[in-house]
Write a protein that binds this DNA or RNA. Sequence first.
DNA 1: ATTACTAAAAGACGAGTAA
DNA 2: TTTACTCGTCTTTTAGTAA
Lengths: 215, 215
Amino acid sequence: MDILSLKKLALLGAHQKPLEMSSVEFATHIDSSQQTAARKLKALEDENLITRIIHNDGQLISITKNGIDLLQKELNDYQGIFSGNEGTIILRGKIITGIGEGQYYIGLDGYRTQFIEKLGFDPYPGTLNVRLDAISIHIRKKIAQSINISGFTDQNRTFGKGSCFRIRISDVEGAVITPERSHYPEDIVEIIAPVNLREHLELKDGTNINVEVTK
Amino acid sequence: MDILSLKKLALLGAHQKPLEMSSVEFATHIDSSQQTAARKLKALEDENLITRIIHNDGQLISITKNGIDLLQKELNDYQGIFSGNEGTIILRGKIITGIGEGQYYIGLDGYRTQFIEKLGFDPYPGTLNVRLDAISIHIRKKIAQSINISGFTDQNRTFGKGSCFRIRISDVEGAVITPERSHYPEDIVEIIAPVNLREHLELKDGTNINVEVTK
DNA sequence: ATTACTAAAAGACGAGTAA
DNA sequence: TTTACTCGTCTTTTAGTAA
């Protein structure tokens, strides 16, 4: 994922209005050959970070919403580096019922052993899905996804990587997990914990909860 | 030049205090093998972006001044991307303690009445001193000192003229003031506001702040 | 336990060139 | 002119290990 090229395009204004630029010209900006420049633009397009309209003598490049989100996340990281520790961060939302995929993925040994090792608990095989309120959606974007979960390959297929950050709900420590290449709506978070949170905290769909982000 | 690894180290706090971390542990953070993690740390050291103290069971990592400068430049790029829209200029720096002269001058009626008239607020009798980072020093020089403050004569002595420009810190509107015949080092700005900024924003020496230049 | 070398595999790059 | 393919080369990464 070529954040440096995306940043370059943004510095040239492609996040505001379509940017007319050939691969030859982009090559000079990233100090590479025309071939590499063209390949990188193609890759960014394949990752849905930019859109292109290619014509006979160049192309019109725009950064997508995905791309802008990624850049915003990067900005937030850097701002986080230079701003001291703020107080506790709390995300608020309502319990919803997910599509039940979480249960399958979390149970897989390839992920489960990583959760045990990196989070320090064996997750209950299921996720609690929470729909964040408007403010929390915004806050969530600023939270560093500090713990990486690697992908792995089964005999049948490949399982992608992801990331997570630690949280607490009432007295239970858990984590918000985010698949890397997710098209999950940004207002929903999936939470894992050592126990069945729904039962432990007697939660029903629609219940409002506070999710405290911990260090 | 591996800015992503450097950023990761900064997110782990290595720009603030030495970070105890083995190459195995760093590998999980950058999602690579131990060998690659070790090599990248070595490369960052060779480029003078970090220093390392290697011992038998790990290493102590600190980001150097060079490294911090590079991260700051990166932050500036991203801020540029997202402030391009509004045309906002942001100066960054750390709170420092000044020599306390500001308090005396601002309280003088000859200046105070001008601040009320030209800035629209009665300044708290004291200044917040900020030491700008390298980039901000540069940016600051390009800002028009749009509001002039006239000098005046007391029965005893003459008080020189100066100029200022409007700024905002968080939710507080204020101004950077510059005495005309100042021998102030160029990396320091003095800020006035209707309130005691130190108390209002709970600022301490060394706190990083963003000073937004407003119209 | 560590860090980090060597050698082989994997991936990125650019020259030539087709469309 | 473009974009972008193939393919040979160069660079980066990882596995296996030494220290």
